[in-house]
């Protein structure tokens, strides 16, 4: 859905070829959500079917579906109702209806209820993996075009990286929180959870 809106919005300032659209999208988002050629042309033909864009009259409309070579030569422009859709997209918040399926939350929810699972080790392994990803994002942020954004597209890319950074950080904070809750529960005797590879209650408050 968001790809469709993004492509439509990119067509607003000027008409473009399909391959240009893909390049413009990746200029702003890196390879975070890679678009393949087929996806680009499928999306374009749906936008056209819905009357939101139209293509250059000189090329046969069927070209897009049958012959990608010819489709690449087709230039797309936005229609007035397409412009309406773009402005509606920018003035409407993204809905947060159903939380997206979160494998980690599901995994942990199951793990804490099963006797044989080392939840402490699970949390630590995940934290290390997520931290490694966070280090990678940070490395991308401090090098290359995201580090000194002087074009709007570079700024866009650095903001996308920030979004990945904040997501990973939120996951690590949540894992810290789960670990602390499980240790407390274990210390109070509610649970038999090996929440941490080391000690439990007695060393909880170690302060010099």
């Amino acid at each position: 859905m968001s790809i469709r809106q993004a492509m439509l919005a990119l067509l607003e300032p000027e008409p473009m070829y399909g391959y240009q659209l893909r390049a413009e999208f990746e200029q702003r988002t890196g390879a975070t959500w890679p678009l393949n050629v087929g996806q680009v042309y499928t999306t374009l033909s749906r936008l056209e079917r819905d009357g939101l864009i139209e293509h250059d009259e000189r090329v046969d409309a069927a070209g897009a579906a049958d012959a990608p070579d010819r489709a690449a030569q087709v230039m797309y422009r936005i229609t007035p109702s397409g412009r309406g859709e773009v402005s509606a997209w920018f003035t409407t918040p993204v809905p947060r209806t159903q939380p997206p399926r979160d494998e980690l939350a599901i995994k942990l929810a199951i793990a804490v209820t099963l006797p044989g699972v080392d939840v402490g080790a699970l949390i630590q392994q995940q934290r290390t993996a997520t931290m490694t990803a966070l280090q990678d994002y940070t490395r991308l942020k401090r090098s290359g075009r995201a580090s000194r954004p002087d074009q709007p597209e570079d700024l866009a890319w650095s903001l996308v990286l920030d979004s990945l950074v904040f997501d990973a950080e939120a996951e690590i904070r949540w894992l810290d929180h789960c670990e602390a809750r499980l240790r407390r529960a274990a210390a109070e005797g509610h649970l038999h959870v090996p929440a941490c590879p080391t000690r439990t209650a007695d060393s909880e408050e170690v302060r010099p």
């Binding site: 990746e26 390879a31 934290r127 490694t132 990678d136 991308l140 080391t198």
Partner: peptide, 29 residues
């Protein structure tokens, strides 16, 4: 995440470490 290595400390012990392998899955365009 700005560090090359991250060491995790719990109750006075190092319990894990995340290394600095460059996994550039997000290669810049």
């Amino acid at each position: 995440a700005w560090a090359d290595r991250v060491v995790f400390l719990r109750d006075g012990l190092i319990v894990d470490e995340s290394g600095a392998d460059v996994a550039d899955e997000l290669l810049e365009v």
